[in-house]
Design a protein around this nucleic acid. Structure first.
Length: 614
RNA sequence: CGGGCUGUGGCGCAGGUUGGUAGCGCGCUCGGUUUGGGACCGAGAGGUCGCGGGUUCGAAUCCCGCCAGCCCGACCA
């Protein structure tokens, strides 16, 4: 394969595009790999398309090696299957919808669970046909509220989506593990650093899911990890529950005047000034903050919820939402407070909440639903609101003086508090640190949600009809390309791993000596004839500086410079990245150039460097 | 959806307060000189100044309205 710069459809930009912020976006546009067509929608130019195809090829090979079979669905789909699973409405404004001339509703697929399920239902009906895993590499459409960062969050993007079908849970576990291992091989081969984090399954439903994140500062997802190997999405982190504390010698609760203390900070200040502890200062962590929120169910019902948590922590709405799904969480409104005069803002305490307010004849709590942070274990002592303006109660002991929602304890706590750096990992593997990452893959053990909704059943060995259980597995192919660009660049430009580079070697002819162009042409065609992908800068009348700058911007891993050294019978061979492929620049006799480049290309292709972190 | 910033040749920007011939750099075309780190000289092509309305003899510039884009947040397999 030989591409000539003189005729290649590419225009490199000397300056950064004004609308690009992150490196991958900036450089992919500057180097002429992609062009913006509309917000979050990009046109692929020859070089960009070559890289995308190479990423796809790696994904395809590993899917096939894992036994998945490739199919291809339309992107334009009828709405009926999505109505059957409820996603026509659930997806809301993120779904691109359109109407044909007859008035029928269509959509541009954001993901294809429904169609795969129906296809298998159409063709298969026996347990003997399973297990089965199908995949496609296809363009997806989501009308994101805020596309950003070029290919990282687009409204049109390329995704590999795979779906597994099994008769039973053991089968699903095996299929899931199989895909998970394939993902590890894909990212390993691409040389892309990744962590696997436990995730919540969100709108997809299902029992279990894991995200593959590429750690980078520009990532959109926050996750936590510990030195000991724990990693999780913030929503999935569980709090380490401290042991209960005996309260036998705890002082009785007492209400004190604490005027003008509507905030935690002001309360702590007054507590220290007027009710000083003998052993240490009061801190925000000694206070119990009761935050009023509203849960809105999918059917629109609104219920108030008060979360009690240590005063030094904020409520993380995303964590709470994950805990109360499918309900959505909103902050309480004036109207909410108006309906509940017992909630004295700034001075809300457990006394008026949940069953602490008393129970009705059926034992149902009279107060607003009340859930506690798991750290509020029995025996812990708190300063909290006395439900009267300007007054707080001290030494209020959990379990002795108040309880959460119900009597039994099962439903009493909620994972709603923010996770902070330094919090202990739930598996005891050390303190957590917060990090950002790009979600490059997500795998779900879906279970029977889609098969149930769409009636995908097979006969088992007893001739009984059973619902098939499914998994779905996605890799954002175009996003992976952006992550690779992000991880492989420097100030001068891109620096692709050989596995995905648009060419293996970039031959540059400098000067105007016809002998130089003849030698460069010979090297380029020799290499191309041997199957090496060559980008040859054969532009006449272009200065060496421009050619070098372009070569560095385009990021092909090996550079061959044919120029003044030719008088001594040598050309220069050097890697795009110092330290790669040998020791750096080397002078190679012109007749050996093709052989030497071949060796270096082989070495680069052999040495992929990805790794699972943490 | 909230907050901020920005719309002027293909790209990056100045001009705007103080209304009066639309400018600079890059890129592009032609001629010439150059050729190992984004060369130089000369001659050119290319713009409804985001859109609509208003003020004015005259609007890129002032006023009103709208639209679009980018960034942060909310949202998001």
């Amino acid at each position: 394969m030989l591409l000539r710069m003189s005729s290649l459809f590419v225009r490199t930009l000397r300056e950064d595009p004004a609308d690009a912020e992150v490196a991958s976006h900036r450089l992919l546009v500057r180097a002429g790999y992609i062009r913006r067509a509309a917000p979050g929608i990009y046109t692929w130019l020859p070089l960009g398309l070559r890289v995308l195809r190479k990423v796809e090829a790696v994904v395809r090979e590993e899917m096939e090696a894992a036994g998945a079979q490739e199919v291809h669905f339309p992107a334009l789909l009828p709405k009926e299957p999505y109505e059957a699973t409820g996603r026509w409405t659930e997806y809301g404004p993120n779904l691109f919808r359109l109407r044909d001339r007859k008035g029928a509703d269509l959509l541009l697929a954001p993901t294809h669970e429904e169609l795969f399920t129906l296809l298998v239902k159409d063709l298969y009906s026996s347990y003997k046909d399973l297990p089965l895993t199908l995949f496609q590499i296809q363009t997806k459409y989501r009308d994101e509220a805020r596309p950003r960062a070029g290919l990282i969050r687009g409204r049109e993007f390329v995704m590999k989506d795979a779906y597994s079908f099994d008769v039973d849970d053991e089968g699903l576990d095996a299929s899931y593990a199989n895909q998970r291992a394939a993902y590890q091989r894909v990212f390993q081969r691409l040389g892309l650093e990744y962590v696997v984090v436990a995730a919540t399954s969100g709108a997809m439903g299902g029992s279990r899911s894991e995200e593959f994140l590429n750690p980078t500062q520009i990532g959109e997802d926050t996750f936590v990890r510990s030195a000991g190997g724990y990693a999780a999405n913030v929503e999935a982190v569980t709090t380490v529950v401290p042991p209960a504390v005996p309260w036998d010698d705890a002082p009785a609760a007492h209400v004190e005047d604490t005027p003008d203390t509507p905030t935690i900070d002001s309360l702590v200040a007054v507590a220290n000034a007027r009710f000083a502890r003998p052993d240490r200062e009061w801190t925000a962590a000694d206070t119990l903050k009761n935050v009023v929120l509203a849960l809105v169910s999918p059917t629109g019902e609104r219920e108030l919820l008060v979360v009690g948590l240590p005063g030094d922590r904020e409520v993380d709405l995303k964590r709470l939402e994950a805990a109360v799904a499918p309900a959505e969480v909103e902050t309480a409104t004036e109207a909410d407070f108006a309906r509940h005069p017992e909630l004295v803002r700034g001075y809300i305490g457990p006394g008026v909440l949940g069953a602490n307010r008393g129970v009705d004849a059926d034992g149902a709590p009279l107060g607003v639903r009340y859930l506690l942070d798991p750290r509020v274990v029995p025996g812990t002592r708190w300063i909290t609101g006395a439900d009267v303006p300007g007054r707080h109660v001290f030494d209020l002991v959990a379990g002795r003086d108040f309880i959460a929602a119900g009597q039994d304890g099962a439903e009493n706590t909620v994972e709603a508090a923010e996770v902070r750096a330094g919090d202990p990992a739930p598996d005891g593997s050390g303190p957590l640190e917060l990090a950002r990452g790009i979600e490059i893959g997500h795998i779900f053990a879906l279970g029977r949600k889609y098969a149930d909704a769409l009636g995908l059943t097979v006969l088992d060995r007893n001739g009984k009809s059973v619902v098939v259980t499914m998994g779905s597995y996605g890799i954002g192919v175009s996003r992976v390309m952006a992550a690779l660009a992000e991880a492989n660049h420097d100030d001068a430009g891109l620096a692709w791993p050989a596995q995905v580079a648009p060419a293996h070697v970039h031959v540059v002819a400098t000067g105007k000596d016809p002998a130089v162009f003849a030698a460069a042409e010979s090297i380029a065609t020799t290499l191309a004839g041997r199957g090496t992908a060559v980008l040859y800068d054969d532009r006449p009348k272009v200065s060496p500086g421009v050619k070098f700058a372009d070569a560095e911007l385009l990021g092909v891993p090996l550079l061959v410079v044919v120029g003044r050294g030719l008088a001594d019978g040598v050309v220069e061979v050097r890697p795009r990245r110092a330290g790669q492929a040998g020791t750096g620049a080397e002078q190679v006799p012109v007749e050996r150039a093709a052989d030497r480049v071949g060796e270096l290309v082989d070495a680069l292709l052999a040495g992929s460097g990805g790794s699972e972190q943490a």
